[in-house]
Measured scan of single mutants.
Amino acid sequence: HNLTITQGKLFFHYNPKLCLSEIHKMEEVSGTKGRQERNDIALKTNGDQASCENELLKFSYIRTSFDKILLRWEPYWPPDFRDLLGFMLFYKEAPYQNVTEFDGQDACGSNSWTVVDIDPPLRSNDPKSQNHPGWLMRGLKPWTQYAIFVKTLVTFSDERRTYGAKSDIIYVQTDATNPSVPLDPISVSNSSSQIILKWKPPSDPNGNITHYLVFWERQAEDSELFELDYCLKGLKLPSRTWSPPFESEDSQKHNQSEYEDSAGECCSCPKTDSQILKELEESSFRKTFEDYLHNVVFVPRKTSSGTGAEDPRPSRKRRSLGDVGNVTVAVPTVAAFPNTSSTSVPTSPEEHRPFEKVVNKESLVISGLRHFTGYRIELQACNQDTPEERCSVAAYVSARTMPEAKADDIVGPVTHEIFENNVVHLMWQEPKEPNGLIVLYEVSYRRYGDEELHLCVSRKHFALERGCRLRGLSPGNYSVRIRATSLAGNGSWTEPTYFYVTDYLDVPSNIA
């Protein structure tokens, strides 16, 4: 807008934040220059609390790290170098490059900038070799853009010569660093050979998330399962459950009422301010606690030095998902009996873990797994792929695949051998790939016309006998059925096997 004052003059007093240069501009645009008398524009009460600059400061050096910015700028000295009290560095987070010096300023003089007072450097006698002032900004957020400017702080001049310097606002972004852990990993099994893994992005990506790394490792069953005799009275049979499938998407929606109208769909109840505040506090606490764990609990591995020492970490090797089922080394339970199943799973520490690289999504279907087997899954978020990966501390989750139908069934015939004193040795093959492992066998036998009897055969007993022995049988026709019990439950009964026990007292003698 054009402003013209045809008559009258300007009068400025007691404006401590208004620089004289701005008042002189007002004289020019209003056409009143030359009308004012000496005392109409006070030299001592206008701009006496402001830094009124008329020179431009330029930054000469900028260096960044993930949490620091090192700045240096060209030296500046007023005509009387004693008038320079120091520099004021202003900075704040700036997602967009549209910041002005006066953003967030209120009537009390406060604003949204963080201000650092910096002492002037030592003055050199040689004007050509003056030290460049600077400042190291610490405690910054990774991968965050900051708006920065600097200006001088000078003393009051009796001659009211307006001098000083100020830089333009520059924008500097800190470097990326390792992201925080992925949030809320959930693993479920939808079949006997697959596990579905879902997660949420890290709360602090500290860069642009480029991919996720998912490692999985087959877990050995508890050692007590191999040692305890679950045929003993009072000892509860062990059981394991597989990871249940995901709930429906509708039930997972946030901010939804727990109660549904019987007449149909209901609208979600909005969260109160107290609920939102509580969630923010919980989120802040979780982030602080995660940072504490990362800094205190997890110790970084030592990389190899120039002395030739090897990095103890196993090298990563990509495998196809079809090879995942046989990740671990199978060892027989008892070496003397080769027909026992290889369900003991000690994992070799030198073995390469299978892994998958996930790009542009937060889910993965891990296939080719062994049925009813526990897996430990390790999830890392990465925001750099080359020249070397920059990934987060791992988040861990466990899951067990679903049982395989008929995996616990005894394959092959049940054979028998009759000894003296009416002892019958029953023999059968253990299931080759049971659900988890076989903890015991149930032997059901009966003599024709009598009630059915049951015998429990422990895992250890089966390994020693290759089956079991029935003792003290009365003469007669017998039928026997056997079924295995694994961590997933009972298998199917075998087809009945028949044998006849004679009275050993009636056996004919070869003595003449």
Rank of each mutant, 00 (worst) to 15 (best):
Y448F: 13
S320Y: 14
S458L: 07
V414K: 02
E227Y: 05
C468D: 01
T288R: 05
I366W: 01
V299I: 08
N510Q: 08
E404H: 12
P205C: 05
P245I: 14
F215V: 13
S492A: 11
L225P: 04
P496A: 15
T401M: 01
A407I: 03
L505Q: 07
F355D: 02
G489H: 14
L369T: 05
P475I: 07
Y478Q: 02
E247K: 13
F337C: 07
F499C: 03
R459F: 08
A399G: 12
S243M: 12
F499P: 01
F226D: 04
H294R: 14
N339P: 09
T415F: 06
H371L: 11
K357S: 14
S392Q: 03
R313S: 10
E279D: 13
V358F: 06
L379K: 00
S284W: 15
Y375W: 01
E420F: 15
V397Q: 02
G374I: 12
V397M: 12
E247C: 08
A394R: 06
F285K: 08
Q219W: 15
R218Q: 14
A220Q: 14
V439W: 06
V329R: 06
V296K: 13
F337D: 08
L228H: 01
L235T: 04
E433H: 03
P354V: 06
Y448M: 15
P238V: 04
T340G: 08
E350G: 14
V345G: 07
D291T: 06
T343L: 08
F462V: 06
G234H: 08
G306R: 14
A407F: 11
L453F: 11
L321F: 12
A335S: 07
V297K: 12
T373M: 09
R218P: 12
D450W: 10
V411S: 15
T288P: 10
G472I: 08
A395E: 12
R286M: 11
D273Q: 13
P346V: 13
R400T: 05
E452K: 08
A381D: 00
D229H: 05
G234R: 12
R446S: 03
V327I: 05
V345I: 14
S248L: 04
H371N: 03
E350V: 12
T288M: 07
G476S: 01
R319Y: 03
I366T: 01
K236I: 06
V501Q: 02
N208W: 12
E221W: 15
S315V: 09
A336N: 12
S398K: 06
T485V: 03
V443P: 01
E282R: 09
E404G: 11
I482M: 02
I209K: 13
T288F: 03
D408L: 03
L437V: 11
V327K: 15
Y292D: 08
T347S: 12
S458I: 10
H254W: 10
G476T: 00
L235V: 09
K278V: 09
Y441Q: 01
V334Y: 09
K357R: 08
V423D: 15
